[in-house]
Simulated assay, not measured.
Amino acid sequence: MSVVERYSAADPDAMHELGVAFGRRLGAGDLVILTGELGAGKTTFTRGLGEGLGVRGPVQSPTFVIARTHPSLVGGAPLIHVDAYRLADSSELEDLDLDFDGAVVVAEWGAGLVDARDSWVEIVIDRPIGAGDAAADDADDDVAEAPIEPRALTVTGHGPRWQNGVLA
Rank of each mutant, 00 (worst) to 15 (best):
A144T: 01
A14G: 01
G132M: 00
G29R: 12
T46Y: 14
A139G: 03
T44E: 07
Y7W: 15
S2T: 05
V59T: 01
L18R: 08
D13K: 05
G75I: 03
R6S: 13
D133K: 10
D140I: 09
I33E: 08
G29N: 07
A139R: 06
N164T: 04
D30K: 14
T35F: 10
N164L: 11
R127N: 14
E51G: 01
V104S: 05
L34W: 12
P12E: 03
G102D: 03
G159I: 04
D99M: 02
A134S: 03
D101G: 14
P147N: 05
A77N: 13
V32T: 11
A107M: 04
V155R: 05
A111Y: 07
E37F: 13
A134N: 12
E122M: 11
L96C: 09
G132R: 02
G159Q: 12
R6N: 12
R127K: 15
L153Y: 03
I33Y: 13
D95S: 10
D126Q: 10
E37I: 05
T69L: 14
W120V: 08
G48L: 09
I80M: 02
R151G: 08
Q163G: 03
D137L: 13
L53K: 05
P62F: 01
S8R: 15
F22C: 15
V124L: 13
A146M: 00
L98K: 07
S90L: 12
W162P: 04
I129E: 14
G159S: 13
T69H: 09
W109A: 06
S8F: 15
A168C: 05
V114T: 02
A131S: 15
A139D: 08
P150K: 02
V105L: 15
D137T: 04
T43R: 04
D11R: 07
N164H: 12
A146T: 00
A152K: 13
L167A: 07
V65M: 01
D138V: 00
S2I: 07
T154V: 14
D99L: 03
T46R: 04
V65S: 04
